[in-house]
């Protein structure tokens, strides 16, 4: 027991000290600062709050109010750029470097398809669907170091990102999720515990349909034929040889895709997951089957 090993030293010091009881414990000295009355020349003054009025009473004017002037936020003409900002969809970014970090530290399993649920499950990516977050935007920081063969489904991706993933033999899909689905994907366990049936995924809103049906952005509603053409086109543009998917040993994993109405991999809408008894309730009623297949 070296005398300078701090933990061992303090524990061995305790051996020869009286027993720690309720009577002889205390906080660290100086950890609590008690408020004291000011003394001296300005001790009994206004304590920096000025004389009378809103300063002393701390009832400050509302933000932006300029005591009767035309306030700044109304004086500036309307910026068209901000039109409808409260309706715009947000995609919190995640860089390829961060994704590589997750993969290196085994936070996501690359032997299975990666989707927004597994990214959130890693604990190092947060999404707030109630704050108009509509999923992950995979950005191209670290595209040159990225070296994992993955099947990933994101909500937004640029051309460089698609190239970086396909160069390594991976597959990327961009897919739309409505906020309800994202809430469920954010914490699937909590949703399963409510005992409700898995809902259907909604189709994208009109202004997003173009993105998600385009093969160039690897949209989930695009024609697979066109996507393979685009894959080849992109490889020629960026100058890499496209690895052959068909001869890949992980072909099944790499081509695993969700149905446009599906929220989770392998689980159909309409099913109820019972976590306690580890069983799945599947509807057989014609009416329900029709509803969930729509």
């Amino acid at each position: 027991m070296g005398s300078r090993q701090i933990t061992e030293k303090s524990l061995s010091m305790l051996r020869s000290l009286p027993r720690i009881t309720l009577a002889n414990i205390r906080d660290n000295p100086g950890s609590k600062i008690t408020q004291k009355r000011g003394r001296g020349q300005h001790g009994g003054d206004k304590h920096g709050a000025g004389n009378k009025g809103s300063g002393q009473r701390q009832n400050y004017m509302r933000l932006g109010y300029e005591t009767g002037n035309n306030p700044f936020y109304l004086r500036i003409p309307h910026e068209n750029y901000y039109r409808g900002h409260h309706l715009k969809r947000e995609y919190p970014p995640m860089t390829l470097l961060e994704l590589q970090k997750l993969i290196d530290r085994n936070r996501v399993d690359i032997s299975k398809p990666i989707d927004i649920a597994s990214l959130i499950k890693s604990g190092l990516y947060t999404l707030n669907p109630d704050q108009k977050h509509f999923g992950v935007n995979l950005t191209d920081d670290g595209a040159d170091i990225f070296a994992a063969k993955i099947n990933i489904e994101v909500q937004w991706a640029s051309e460089q990102v698609i190239a970086a993933i396909e160069k390594n033999g991976g597959v990327i899909t961009t897919a739309y999720y409505d906020p309800h689905s994202l809430f469920i994907l954010k914490n699937p366990q909590r949703f399963f515990e409510t005992g409700q049936a898995i809902p259907r995924r909604m189709i994208p809103p009109p202004d997003a349909i173009e993105f998600y049906t385009s093969a160039a952005t690897r949209g989930y509603l695009a024609d697979p034929e066109k996507i393979s053409q685009e894959r080849l086109k992109l490889s020629q543009k960026y100058g890499y040889t496209l690895p052959n998917l068909e001869s890949d040993p992980q072909y099944d994993m790499l081509t695993d895709r969700k149905d446009p109405r599906q929220i989770f991999f392998g689980l159909q809408p309409g099913w109820v997951i019972n976590l306690k008894d580890e069983c799945i309730l599947k509807p057989k009623d014609e009416e329900l089957l029709q509803f969930y297949s729509m």
Binding site: I6, T7, S10, L11, L14, I20, L22, I25, R26, D27, N28, S31
Partner: peptide, 14 residues
């Protein structure tokens, strides 16, 4: 069972 003995943490718990 051999964590550093923090008397201040014990105190705050009590």
């Amino acid at each position: 069972y051999a964590a550093p003995p923090r008397i201040d943490i014990i105190h705050s718990n009590v």
